[in-house]
Amino acid sequence: MSNMPRAEQETVRDIYRPRPASIVRTADVTRIEKLFELELESGEALGHMPGQFVEVSLAGFGEAPISVSSSPTRGPRFELVVRRVGALTGALHRLKPGDRVGIRGPFGTWFPVDSDLRGRDVLFICGGIGLVPVRSAIQYVVDKRSHYGHMFILFGARTPADRLFSDEYEQWCAPGEATFLETVDKRDARWTGAEGVLTTLIPCIRFDPGRTVAVICGPPVMYRFVIVELKQRGMAEDNMFVSLERRMKCGVGKCGHCQMNHIYVCQKGPVFRLSEITDLEEAL
């Protein structure tokens, strides 16, 4: 630190100061979700693990917690998928390659890809944009394929138009090594796949609850139903991991917005082992 210019030393410990990153590429994922491939201007890797989030900053608009959608195994660049819901995300959607954003983080806990998931069969259950953070873990598993057993991916979208990453499913699922099932809540004229809520997919797969670890991510309403279904299939709460959304404003355990009971989700979450939060009234 002593070699740094004085000004740099003065600011280096500011937990609220974003690092500049530039947009390398954008791609429309759905009508309202856009993918951003980013690169920190320092050239460093983000240093994240699957399931962690960053605070994306746009001067004049503020910050929003956004989960990282790509795996750290794919190099120093990283991808975020942003749903357009407000002023900040609307402004982000107008950005183009070469434009900059601010990044703080990575923050929070991650899917235990190097511990609990390793050597086990892996069951990913995702509703809607719940697939965004889980995609990072899926890519991680795909890139270290020999470390894991069978991979199940169950994905539910509201309509066929809300499906995400549909051009990647094939690449995730080598025959015999993975099972991919999807459904939509409401079909359209061209949809020939399954129709029904996400939980209807669970009876369609055969897994050994003793050697399978589940990762669940989706809208708040989804968790109870999925968890009940998995418990009925004999899966222990220790073997289920959920990623929970909250208003993670500061990301550093200070501002109070993300608390569920005594837990600061930005610090102890967003990824939790289910057995750790079953007594937490405000969790689900």
């Binding site: 609220y16 001067a59 503020g62 929003a64 749903r83 959304e245 208003r247 501002c255 917005h257």
Partner: peptide, 22 residues
């Protein structure tokens, strides 16, 4: 960029983008 006092009794304190209020 500045911070302002907030209060956990205020209705929107735990509300996220999209309108879900935790």
């Amino acid at each position: 960029r500045y911070r302002v006092w907030d209060g956990c009794l205020l209705e929107e304190f735990a509300m996220v983008a999209g309108g879900h209020n935790f």
